[in-house]
Write a protein that binds this DNA or RNA. Sequence first.
DNA 1: GCTCACAGTAAGAATTATTCTTATTTGCAT
DNA 2: ATGCAAATAAGAATAATTCTTACTGTGAGC
Lengths: 158, 158
Amino acid sequence: MSENFTPDSSLQQQMETFEETCRTADLKLTHQRLEIYRELAKATDHPSAEMLHKRLQKTMPTLSLDTVYRTLTTFEQHHLVKKVQTVDSQARFEAQMVQHHHLICDSCKEIMDFHWNSFDSTPLPADIRQWGTIRNKNVTIHGTCQKCQALKKVKKRT
Amino acid sequence: MSENFTPDSSLQQQMETFEETCRTADLKLTHQRLEIYRELAKATDHPSAEMLHKRLQKTMPTLSLDTVYRTLTTFEQHHLVKKVQTVDSQARFEAQMVQHHHLICDSCKEIMDFHWNSFDSTPLPADIRQWGTIRNKNVTIHGTCQKCQALKKVKKRT
DNA sequence: GCTCACAGTAAGAATTATTCTTATTTGCAT
DNA sequence: ATGCAAATAAGAATAATTCTTACTGTGAGC
């Protein structure tokens, strides 16, 4: 696995930053918030609210789906998580706030992060910069991941 | 307005290509399909199904919203239109199939096309290419358009 | 350590976007 | 022109997300 896929910080470190941000933002550190954030932070597959809820129910059986949605929305407002844009109906989320880009497999819908420093430092065409104030620029790559390609080949044979 | 924002083909030309594609794909050229496609093709704001429906109801009062959704889905399957990914709940559509990128205003939600040839011809980092088969790579820029910036300034003063 | 105000939660109802069902209509090959 | 498969309209149904309400737990101030 190469440089471009390396994660940016340890979970421990990320949890501390999270708690710090909550305190500063006057967000109460509830059990639910901590667990929802931890679950999202440790996930690499950009889960939907429903997926997170399903994973957390194992250890928190009374956790409601609504709380997951509400909490994610709160986190988003405080720039602790991001909603990932997809063409599918369910929204997907990530706790990775460091500049990065996405590889999306159109077959299994998996979303993977990658870094591309040379792109990040390339200036935009001059006339685009006149459009307004630019907040960020991101690359989204669509295709079929290795795993799904392999599956397709097997299916063809049978 | 500069090179990067130039449209790619006239509406007339685009309608002819559309009709040709429908005939080849055994899609009946119904009044609804023609009008929905024309409305989307002439739009530059990447409308949602609902927005298209509203615009078309003026001339086609009995057109159902379901037909708009169903027709757009059919078009998408035949690569006549594309669903544009946004973080918002309503899907947005475009008839522009030539390679291009998007500027999204987070304030008014307007989506604008732009071209960036030097990016299009830049190869991806080698290890990304190993992820699988890449179908396309697109840049999405988020920010605030000039219009909304101007509005914000007015609001601050009052 | 205790108390209390209020932010946060669970559960279920409500809303919004999209899709399905069914009866009717229409494009187009013959 | 005729027949028929495909497409449509209307309203019902579903899926994703958000709201309402009553209850609970956090953490600031004592």
